[in-house]
Amino acid sequence: MIRAFRALIAVVGVAVVASCGSGDSGMNQPVNKFRSYDGPPVTQIVVKKSDRKLYLISDKSVLKTYQINLGNQPVGTKRFEGDGKTPEGMFFIDRFNPQSRYHLSVGISYPRAEDVAFAAASGRRPGGDIFIHGLGPEGRAINRADWTAGCIAVNDQEIEEIFAMVRPGVPIFIYP
């Protein structure tokens, strides 16, 4: 009798645990943040800081446009570590971080040699780790524009698209 009761409890327990991972609402389902893309190649990225826009471009056609947030000091170009500015100029996409604390992130090749030299001449460091990234939990908790330390932020669904569409070596032009 006790064995039958324990067996029943074990079966009920397994059924309860199994149902947690397959609810109809999808609330407990892991979200796949990696998308596929088979459209035209992104040949350049253009960022217009004053308009708060990022454009993915293939040859001369705009494929996608995104509203963006910038560094917490959005006017002017990045010069030094900790200045809160988003860099300006021509860079390249140079890395991808699928484990970013901001959902996903795509690296920008800042600092360039001239950025390092300028900062060094002032006895300072140029900073680094500039990315296009999503919000992640931290970004979603912030309820204001221009909250990054110098990166370019979009929402999590948008960085999933960008992450899938962009390849290493693509030039990115960041305008004031």
Results as ranks from 00 to 15, higher is better:
3 R>M: 10
4 A>W: 11
4 A>G: 10
5 F>Q: 14
8 L>V: 10
9 I>H: 10
9 I>K: 10
10 A>I: 08
13 G>M: 12
17 V>P: 00
21 G>C: 14
23 G>T: 15
24 D>Q: 12
27 M>R: 15
27 M>T: 14
30 P>G: 01
33 K>F: 09
33 K>G: 08
36 S>D: 12
37 Y>E: 07
37 Y>Q: 06
40 P>F: 04
41 P>H: 12
43 T>N: 05
44 Q>A: 10
45 I>M: 05
45 I>K: 00
45 I>G: 01
49 K>H: 09
51 D>W: 10
51 D>N: 15
53 K>R: 15
53 K>W: 09
55 Y>C: 07
57 I>H: 01
57 I>C: 05
58 S>V: 03
60 K>I: 13
61 S>I: 11
63 L>K: 01
64 K>C: 07
64 K>A: 07
66 Y>V: 06
68 I>W: 02
70 L>H: 12
73 Q>C: 07
75 V>Y: 13
75 V>P: 05
78 K>F: 09
79 R>Q: 15
85 K>V: 04
86 T>A: 05
89 G>V: 01
90 M>V: 10
91 F>E: 08
91 F>V: 12
92 F>T: 10
95 R>D: 11
95 R>K: 09
95 R>V: 05
96 F>S: 02
97 N>S: 11
101 R>F: 13
101 R>K: 14
102 Y>I: 02
104 L>K: 00
109 S>G: 08
113 A>R: 09
116 V>S: 04
116 V>N: 02
118 F>S: 15
122 S>T: 04
124 R>I: 08
126 P>S: 07
131 F>S: 03
132 I>T: 04
132 I>N: 04
134 G>W: 01
134 G>M: 06
136 G>A: 12
145 A>F: 13
145 A>N: 12
146 D>M: 03
146 D>W: 05
147 W>I: 11
148 T>Q: 01
149 A>N: 11
153 A>W: 05
157 Q>D: 12
157 Q>H: 12
161 E>C: 05
164 A>M: 09
166 V>F: 04
166 V>Q: 03
168 P>R: 14
169 G>K: 11
170 V>I: 04
170 V>E: 01
171 P>H: 07
172 I>Q: 05
172 I>V: 11
174 I>T: 04
174 I>Y: 06
174 I>G: 01
